[in-house]
Design a binder for these strands. Sequence first.
DNA 1: AAAATGACCGAATTAGTTTTTTGGTCAACT
DNA 2: AGTTGACCAAAAAACTAATTCGGTCATTTT
Lengths: 191, 191
Amino acid sequence: MAIIDRKKLIVEAAAKSFSLYGYKATTMDQVAKLANVGKGTIYTFFKTKEELFDDIINSLIGDIRIEVEGAMDDSASILENLNRVLVRVYEFRKSHQLTIKLIQEERDMGTQTVVEAMQRVEHSIIQYMKVIIQKAIDKGEIKACDPEVTAFVMLKMYFSLVIDWQRNHPPLEKGEITKLFELYLLKGLLT
Amino acid sequence: MAIIDRKKLIVEAAAKSFSLYGYKATTMDQVAKLANVGKGTIYTFFKTKEELFDDIINSLIGDIRIEVEGAMDDSASILENLNRVLVRVYEFRKSHQLTIKLIQEERDMGTQTVVEAMQRVEHSIIQYMKVIIQKAIDKGEIKACDPEVTAFVMLKMYFSLVIDWQRNHPPLEKGEITKLFELYLLKGLLT
DNA sequence: AAAATGACCGAATTAGTTTTTTGGTCAACT
DNA sequence: AGTTGACCAAAAAACTAATTCGGTCATTTT
């Protein structure tokens, strides 16, 4: 259309600014300027700064969903699928400027809005994983278990291995992580 | 002995103050007063405040070691032993005023000295668990694996379940945690 | 003389105050 | 009806003054 889609401009400008400077350091004046729009215009689309931010987080969650669903292959084994999903989520977080900035802001400043947003993101990842796990249970590939707890444990274990472990040790290779994941969670330690 | 053991007085006073107010909020004047000792005397035993603190953390680590070793029973199964150790560590953290205060200070203020101290504590717990795991491997109770990574994963998973899970869900019963621990780590999910 | 002390010091933290910035509004404008 | 930016109260940042703190060391005590 010939008429400029101001809402789109605003969202794009805001996404860019949040990615570059984080939530707190992004001002509404800045967003307005970046979007070539009067500040008041923003408030015709979004009631508050937080609502604008949440809108962008929702897109992010959607993007992750697409990423995760793209990684699934119904003909592959549960192990392959789970591992592929986790790797993609990790790669996504590592490459997506917005998540990097927000993880950083959450860690360094503990901005309340950001903490809540990241919790929503984590929760949505767990929801996607839950579906995958339920499918595997139905197919009889894995034992009956609470899909939500299981998804939760998987995600936590994965991030422990890729993030926490590296704080005091040389990082684990991608292949190693897969193997550990397989050993601990799928096959079990018992002889 | 008739002569007062000033070092002991100092350490006790400091331990009490760190437990009550945390690391940052404890002043050397306060410790001196609590110990009924001139401030200079503290510095004949400890070069800095941090050295005094580290001394107390070392005692804490020793206490945890005793707690852990008391939980071990060579005639029991690996599952029983590991679970008992983790429960004791958790109970210890929950009941020991000093650890409560320090975990809180680490979370709320991120005091550098405290963060490092808590890392040392975690590391030492992992070292004790490592020994237990190595024993289990030698006995053939569990598969061959890197004992350190395994201890790390176990501790992280345990605390995920007892701490992180409760942030957004009703807490898991002690028995449930044992079962989950058994399912995920020992038996494995595969059918 | 060996051990203990607390007044003292510079550095760092905190409290108090002023200035600037920011999220959000709204009367004017297109 | 849709858009705008000057404007406002409130929050944050910057600045300053005052206090506190870790650590020292000359003096006192034993």
